[in-house]
């Protein structure tokens, strides 16, 4: 490719990245204690809207960033996986709180030892629970990461379900591996 092409894509990447990083539609997967700090961060005092992330979408299909807030138990793990798989590319995951990073001090039969054993994670925010300042720091790190991403890559990602040029749907690596729990009768 000519240098002019490179220049064009990098400028386009910059522009898309800039737009994406300030319009984060988040899906708060709130389970536990960290939810209280998530609330504090989202409310007027700390106000994540300053970073363009003030608009939670409660449908995974409309969200860009999955906030996994709080402990994930083994009973809940398939649900988290389903929610992640339902999100469209490009998507990012924030592990909010130490339980989601490593399992924290819940080293026991019920708790998943870090959600990165189930889904990929972009940003880890440690703390039990992290303070709102800490969360905002994590969010800014995510913005940096989004900006640095090669934005157009997502279009050709084999995992991506959005239109590939040849019209073939990619197969996601996790597809078909999720067990669904039947609802109780």
């Amino acid at each position: 490719m000519s240098s002019a092409g490179n220049f064009f894509t990098s400028k386009l990447d910059d522009a898309i990245g800039w737009a994406r990083k300030f319009s984060i539609f988040q899906y708060p997967f709130v389970t536990a204690c960290c939810g209280m700090e998530y609330m504090s961060t989202a409310a007027a005092h700390y106000d994540v809207d300053r970073f363009g992330a003030g608009f939670p979408r409660f449908s995974p299909r409309q969200a860009d960033v999955l906030f996994v807030v709080g402990t994930i138990s083994h009973k809940l793990a398939p649900v988290l996986k389903t929610v992640y798989d339902q999100m469209c590319e490009p998507k990012w995951v924030i592990a909010f709180g130490v339980c989601t990073c490593t399992g924290g001090f819940y080293d026991n039969y019920a708790t998943v030892q870090g959600i990165d054993t189930i889904i990929p994670v972009d940003i880890y925010i440690p703390g039990c629970p992290p303070r709102p300042e800490n969360v905002i720091d994590g969010l800014m790190k995510l913005q940096e990461k989004i900006q640095k991403n090669e934005q157009s890559r997502a279009l050709y990602d084999p995992c991506s379900k959005i239109g590939r040029p040849d019209g073939i749907q990619g197969k996601c690596s996790t597809e078909g591996k999720i067990k669904h729990i039947e609802p109780a009768k």
């Binding site: 398939p78 080293d107 026991n108 039969y109 998943v112 054993t117 189930i118 999720i178 067990k179 729990i181």
Partner: peptide
């Protein structure tokens, strides 16, 4: 049954993902 004394506290039986 998890709270029985002979059930190890960190014996995991994940539905998905690895046993770690």
């Amino acid at each position: 049954h998890a709270l029985r004394k002979d059930y190890p506290f960190n014996k995991r039986q994940p539905l998905i993902g690895p046993i770690n």
